[in-house]
C-alpha cells in the first residue's frame, strides 16, 4: 500500500464529510448523500474511461446492486445495511465477471452498444416481473447495521455516514489500484494495446479486471442509493440512467479519484437548483453546463485543479 498525498487527502475529506453530517442542514446532507452514491458509480466509469472504453450500460450494475439490496429486505427479511451493500457488490461483480468474458473482446462503439444491450435486457425482465412491482418498483428500508438496530430518528445520519464510509473506502482503494502496476496498465491500454501485449501483459485480462471492478463500484453505489432513496424501480437500468453516468464522468474528468465524487456533487447541485428555479427548462440548464464544460474544460471539471499548477 502506498500512502501518498492523495490517499491522505481522500481519508481527510472522508473525515470532514463525516463530521459535517450532524452540522449541515438536512437538505444539504441528502444532496451530499445522493452525490456520494452517484460518485461511487462514476468512480467505476472513470476507471473504464482511463482504460479507453465507455460503457453505456452501467445502469445494469447500478440496478443489480439496488435490487440485490432490495430483495434482501423484500424476500430475505434481512434489512441489514452492510449485508445489503455487500450483496449489491457481490451480485454486480459476479454478473460482470461472466459478461466481461464476452465484453472484454470489444472496444469503442461495439463495447458501448453491447453493454447497453445487456442493461436493457435487465430492464425488459424487470418490467415484465409483476411480483416486483414492474415499472413501479418497490420500497426498501435498512433497519440494522451489522446487527445493530438503527434508532428511528437517526436513520438519515446513519445512512449518510455509511455512504461516506463506502464512498471514501472505494475512492481510497481505487486510488491504490490506479497507482499499482496493474492499475497503470489502464492508461497504457488506452494509448496502445499492441505495445501492452508486447510488454508481456494481457490486455484482455486487464480490461476484464477493470470491468469487474467498475461493476462492483456500480453495485455498491446502487445498493447505497436504494437504501438512501428507499425505493427502487427498473428506471435504474434504463438507458438514460446509464447515459447520465457517462455524462457525469465526462463532466468530472478522469484526473483523480476526487473528480467523480466532486463531479457528482456539482451535477446533483446544478440539477437540484435547476429543478427549483427553472422547472420547465432544467434539462436545458444541464445541457448548457455540459456544452460549456466540453468547450472550455475538455478535461472535465477536474482540470480546473490541475491546469493552474502547470501554468
Amino acid at each position: 500500500m502506498r500512502i501518498d498525498r492523495n490517499s491522505i487527502a481522500v481519508v481527510l475529506v472522508g473525515v470532514v464529510l463525516l463530521a459535517l453530517g450532524p452540522v449541515l442542514p438536512s437538505w444539504a446532507v441528502s444532496l451530499l448523500n445522493v452525490a456520494l452514491c452517484y460518485g461511487t458509480v462514476v468512480l467505476g466509469m472513470m476507471l473504464l474511461m482511463r482504460t479507453g472504453i465507455v460503457s453505456f450500460g452501467h445502469g445494469l450494475y447500478y440496478c443489480l446492486g439496488a435490487y440485490a439490496a432490495g430483495l434482501l429486505d423484500h424476500f430475505g427479511k434481512m434489512p441489514d445495511m452492510l449485508l445489503m451493500v455487500g450483496a449489491g457488490a457481490v451480485t454486480a461483480g459476479l454478473v460482470a465477471a461472466v459478461l466481461g468474458l464476452l465484453l472484454a473482446k470489444y472496444r469503442d462503439i461495439f463495447f458501448a452498444m453491447l453493454s447497453l444491450a445487456f442493461s436493457m435486457i435487465l430492464y425488459g425482465l424487470l418490467v415484465k416481473t409483476a411480483s416486483l412491482g414492474s415499472t413501479d418498483g418497490f420500497n426498501v428500508a435498512a433497519k440494522t447495521v451489522g446487527g445493530i438496530v438503527i434508532a428511528e430518528d437517526s436513520v438519515r445520519i446513519v445512512v449518510y455516514s455509511l455512504a461516506v464510509v463506502f464512498a471514501t473506502l472505494s475512492a481510497f482503494l481505487l486510488h491504490q489500484y490506479l497507482a499499482s502496476h496493474q492499475g497503470r496498465l489502464a492508461g497504457a491500454i488506452k494509448d496502445n494495446e499492441l505495445r501492452v501485449e508486447y510488454m508481456g501483459a494481457s490486455v484482455k485480462a486487464a480490461v476484464h479486471r477493470n470491468y469487474v471492478i467498475s461493476a462492483v463500484l456500480a453495485g455498491i453505489g446502487g445498493a447505497l442509493m436504494a437504501v438512501n432513496i428507499g425505493h427502487i424501480d427498473p428506471e435504474m437500468t434504463y438507458w438514460p440512467q446509464s447515459g447520465e453516468f457517462v455524462f457525469v464522468a465526462i463532466l468530472s474528468g478522469t484526473g483523480s479519484v476526487f473528480a467523480p465524487l466532486g463531479g457528482a456533487l456539482v451535477f446533483e447541485a446544478i440539477r437540484s437548483f435547476a429543478y427549483e428555479y427553472s422547472p420547465n427548462t432544467w434539462q436545458m440548464v444541464l445541457g448548457i453546463t455540459m456544452l460549456l464544460v466540453m468547450i472550455f474544460l475538455p478535461g472535465g471539471l477536474w482540470s480546473l485543479f490541475t491546469r493552474k499548477r502547470g501554468a
Partner: peptide, 16 residues
Amino acid sequence: GATKQVSEYRTLVQRQ
C-alpha cells in the same frame, strides 16, 4: 424517475 423525485421532495420540504 423515483430516485430524483425523492431528492426533489426533500428539497421542497427542507430547503423550500
